[in-house]
Design a protein around this nucleic acid. Structure first.
Lengths: 222, 222
DNA sequence: TACTTTTTGATAGTATTACTATTATATTTG
DNA sequence: CAAATATAATAGTAATACTATCAAAAAGTA
């Protein structure tokens, strides 16, 4: 039994992978494979093979690769939400909480030993590399109704509410945090692959400073 | 002959589609098809078929669907750059230019009658729906060297330089505008499909205001 | 322990996709 | 008109994205 369980909508799997050994190994291995070779190059056949299992067995847990990615990414947001809640308890001001939230979005993650089958650091890199692919599809409206994007929405809400504590008149809390969160991802990606699209030669610290400044300057009453 | 020609790196095609009638029809039809059915559901076979041509003929112009999308998106950035340059001539202050740039990113585009084979409005919607897919791949580094992302980089540079005119000490001009441009796309997408991630119930006007505020507040000396 | 249900592995098969290759026929250009 | 080039028609291959079937193994239950 896990000491900690992240809940993911039942629409995101055929059969709950957290409930069986094979299921957990599928999660673990697909994070590893997708991060390593990229979403497009992964197939259920390869996942099955590398687990010494079969394609058909992976299909028993997930309808297709897209659903599997959506599951993993929702798991990540769910887990990040838990992390944030934990860290926020130790902080008092909304501003400090927002600053810490930005750090959590950008700093590399340590393995959480309460959840041995998920490598959070690798999963974070996977999210950075693949996140928009789960909503940039023609199926977005249908999948939205199935709860494919709840994890992300909840985090945006939480952070938006903190912003409103600082300035109740701020008009764009949802837009701001969907922007900040996705910028947190893309700036990490750009720093590594398209450096001319960032100014973060100094690495994660610069990304955090950029995002924090942008966030607080946007919210501030003036 | 076109009155206006947008140049796209020769690495983005096998055979220049702007030089032949079939090439232009491929551009025109693939914008239409991709916007309508989504990148994933388009195949070269379908494009060929809907042009009353063949799959093999489309392959003569583009190596694959990914390259075709990259071509179209680069074309869009090239064209937007031209638009911006035109509009900036009529404006004096860097601030006005930045404001106008944000509007051009978000407002729907009219068909440019100098380029009859490209429907700019449809192309803009295609970019909103598909843009990150051209760089979120394992091939990004190789493709970056081939110039797959030059269009985007140039626009970020241009806008970044305007920001530096307002505040020469601003530390994150590239990060800011890669963020603003991609937020311009994603806020349009969210408003339509995932409204809980935006506050733009009032539509494009609200997106423009949100982005303009965020931009100017970030740059400002304080 | 025996019995039943559930889970997995092994295998096969289909339709579609993402190409590559070949050749004949138009079309353009010199 | 001849030569070069572009296109259409067709065929073929390997991989992908599934679906289906059945037997063996494992787990849960009486």
């Amino acid at each position: 039994m896990n000491a900690l369980n992240i809940s993911v909508s039942a629409k995101l799997y055929n059969k709950n992978p957290e409930e069986t050994d094979l299921g957990k190994r599928i999660l673990s291995k697909s994070i590893e494979l997708m991060e390593e070779m990229g979403y497009e190059h992964v197939t259920f056949k390869k996942i099955g093979l590398s687990l010494e299992s079969t394609e058909a067995s992976v299909y028993r847990y997930f309808q297709n690769k897209h659903q599997l990615l959506a599951y993993l990414i929702n798991w990540y947001w769910g887990w990040l939400e838990v992390k944030m809640a934990q860290e926020f308890m130790m902080l008092n001001s909304a501003e400090d909480k927002l600053k810490r939230a930005v750090e959590l979005l950008v700093l590399p993650m340590d393995e959480d030993e309460r959840i041995p089958h998920i490598d959070e650091g690798t999963l974070q890199r996977l999210v950075v590399a693949e996140y928009p692919k789960i909503y940039l599809t023609k199926e977005v409206d249908a999948e939205n109704e199935e709860g494919y994007f709840l994890g992300y929405k909840r985090i945006c809400d939480t952070l938006g509410n903190l912003a409103l504590q600082i300035n109740p008149d701020y008009k764009y809390p949802h837009s701001l945090f969907s922007t900040v969160i996705s910028a947190a991802q893309s700036q990490q990606f750009f720093t590594e692959h398209l450096p001319r699209l960032s100014d973060a030669a100094t690495g994660r610290k610069a990304i955090i400073e950029f995002l924090t400044e942008m966030t607080l300057n946007s919210i501030q009453k003036r």
